Amino acid sequence: MDKRITNEAGLTPKLDADQINALLRRAYPQLNAEFSDYVTLEVFAGGCTVRLNANERHLRPGDTVSGPSLFTLADIGGYVCVLSHAGPDALSVTTSLNINFVRKAPPGPIDGHCRIIKLGRNLMVFEIDMKAGPDGLTVAHATGTYAIPPKTSA
């Protein structure tokens, strides 16, 4: 299924992937500290693709990527969607995030395909499908909501 077909009509990104990665380095430097584990790969109308480059720092016993690492990927996907589509106000915050872990996530790249379900003036609702491994199977799926701060008049 083409991810672009299922997006809400009329959503146009205001920032591209490179601009988002630069913004995250400035506004949220602790996300990647000395590593580049979480990155934005693509921003498109109504969504984005983010990646976790999962390595030994992200593993729990059993050689599986930890739930908190996948949860962070889901949250970053929503954050990238709100920043790229509602505007670069770094003060947007998560108000809810619901995650389902589907199968073991092996170390290596895990791609989060994020789609905006609804973008309003105050809230953005999204879903993200996280895929990994040689077969690109879903390892986790999440839905969430971001609060968008009110626009201030200049």
Results as ranks from 00 to 15, higher is better:
102 V>A: 06
111 D>T: 12
147 A>N: 15
62 G>W: 07
47 G>I: 03
148 I>H: 03
108 G>M: 05
56 E>D: 13
65 V>Y: 01
15 L>Q: 11
35 F>G: 14
36 S>T: 08
134 P>T: 09
138 T>P: 05
37 D>R: 15
151 K>F: 01
71 F>E: 03
93 V>K: 02
60 R>L: 00
114 C>F: 00
128 I>G: 06
112 G>S: 06
1 M>G: 13
47 G>S: 03
85 H>S: 08
113 H>R: 07
5 I>P: 00
18 D>A: 14
32 N>P: 01
4 R>L: 04
91 L>N: 14
124 M>R: 11
144 G>Q: 05
139 V>G: 11
128 I>F: 00
112 G>W: 06
133 G>V: 02
14 K>N: 08
68 P>M: 07
80 V>M: 05
9 A>I: 04
69 S>I: 00
122 N>H: 13
43 V>H: 06
77 G>C: 04
75 D>I: 04
55 N>Y: 02
40 T>W: 00
35 F>C: 07
69 S>T: 07
56 E>C: 04
41 L>I: 09
142 A>I: 05
98 N>V: 09
99 I>G: 11
63 D>A: 14
21 N>D: 10
130 M>S: 08
28 Y>A: 14
49 T>S: 06
134 P>S: 12
117 I>F: 00
12 T>L: 11
55 N>G: 15
134 P>M: 11
124 M>C: 15
105 A>Q: 07
85 H>G: 07
56 E>T: 15
87 G>S: 00
75 D>P: 00
88 P>W: 01
137 L>R: 13
113 H>L: 11
75 D>V: 10
17 A>N: 10
72 T>E: 05
151 K>H: 05
43 V>L: 07
26 R>V: 10
92 S>E: 03
28 Y>Q: 12
124 M>G: 06
150 P>Y: 01
133 G>Q: 08
88 P>Q: 07
129 D>L: 10
6 T>G: 09
86 A>L: 02
143 T>I: 02
33 A>L: 09
127 E>A: 12
2 D>M: 06
1 M>C: 13
85 H>W: 11
117 I>E: 04
2 D>I: 03
53 N>W: 04
63 D>E: 10
46 G>T: 11
14 K>F: 02
